[in-house]
């Protein structure tokens, strides 16, 4: 009975949180929150995170973290710009996805073959990415062609979002690729003893995460109009917070839902937007975000299988 109640709370908490935020901000911002322009802003701001988070769900499902996202985004952007000179945007998109898959594979191989924790492998990519983009941005201006700014609109992002979700949702929910991630996340040893090629499925998860990161990197370039030293900064934390707010279990496993990427990203940006509309002191905004994050982890984290020695 207790467990059923707990899992019900875990299930509804992300939705309830988002609805509560929407209601609170709608009633306390003189209607500014629900103004069409503001809602459009929130959607536009959250879509890149949503896309990156969507692929990251595969990695989190098998109980890993992808810390390469921010640096990887920078690396993909810089290398794809270098390779294509931004002359042809469709080609650039393809190159971004390929480089993204490459980043994912490198992280996975370091993790799987080198038996190094995935977050450390991801951090390697993060540092390499930052180093490469800083070096390149120092020596060359990497602006996208002026006409690329016409794509910097929500409709353009939305098309990518729909395509990414249309591929990832069935892949995660209805194919072996997704199901195995959850199985590995629930009990990797049992999965391995059952004959599951754990390493192979982890590599596939990182490759998918890399592919969506490639798309996110491409859209970030379109949004800011260039490849800058700071491109992708903080993407890994944004995605992690968004997925947590979306109710993803930090330990992966069967409770992992891909909708967490959607719900969590919207919640995260609604929170930031609403607090700004309140005119809250910037330092307080960080504190409130931290408290909300902690409260979400507290409410949704499954502690039943965790051992704590206190």
């Amino acid at each position: 009975m207790e467990k059923t109640k707990y899992s019900f709370i875990k299930k509804v908490a992300p939705y309830a949180g988002l609805i509560a935020l929407v209601i609170i901000f709608s009633l306390t911002t003189d209607g500014r929150f629900v103004a069409a322009r503001n809602l459009t802003n929130i959607i536009g701001q959250s879509m890149v995170t949503m896309i990156a988070a969507c692929g990251c769900v595969f990695v989190m499902a098998h109980n890993n973290l992808d810390f390469s996202l921010g640096g990887g985004c920078a690396l993909i952007a810089a290398l794809s710009f270098r390779a294509t000179k931004a002359a042809n945007l469709p080609l650039m998109l393809v190159v971004c996805i390929l480089f993204g898959i490459g980043c994912g594979l490198i992280t996975a191989l370091i993790h799987v073959k080198g038996r190094i924790p995935a977050f450390m492998a991801g951090m390697c990519i993060m540092f390499v990415g930052r180093g490469v983009v800083e070096g390149m941005a120092t020596n060359m201006v990497m602006n996208l062609p002026a006409d690329s700014s016409r794509y910097a609109n929500n409709l353009f992002y939305l098309i990518f979002l729909i395509v990414v979700f249309a591929i990832c949702v069935p892949l995660f929910n209805y194919t072996k690729v997704g199901k195995m991630q959850k199985l590995i996340g629930s009990n990797p040893r049992a999965a391995q003893l059952s004959g599951v090629a754990v390493g192979k499925y982890k590599v596939i998860a990182f490759a998918i995460s890399g592919a969506t990161l490639g798309v996110a990197s491409f859209l970030t370039m379109i949004r800011i109009g260039s490849v800058t030293k700071t491109i992708g900064s903080g993407l890994e934390t944004d995605v992690l917070i968004a997925l947590t707010l979306g109710g993803i279990p930090l330990t992966g496993g069967t409770g992992t839902r891909i909708r967490a990427a959607f719900i969590g990203s919207v919640t995260y940006f609604v929170l930031g937007n609403g607090l700004t509309l309140w005119g809250l002191d910037a330092n307080l905004i960080y504190i409130v975000k931290g408290v909300v994050f902690l409260a979400t982890v507290f409410a949704t984290m499954d502690r039943t299988d965790q051992e704590y020695v206190l």
């Binding site: 500014r32 929150f33 103004a35 322009r37 503001n38 802003n41 536009g44 701001q45 970030t220 949004r223 800011i224 260039s226 800058t228 700071t230 491109i231 992708g232 900064s233 903080g234 930031g272 937007n273 700004t276 509309l277």
Partner: peptide, 14 residues
């Protein structure tokens, strides 16, 4: 970073 400044300006305008 640019992305954060862009997000901030959108929020401030809103």
């Amino acid at each position: 970073d640019t992305e954060s400044q862009l997000t901030s300006v959108e929020n401030l305008i809103s």
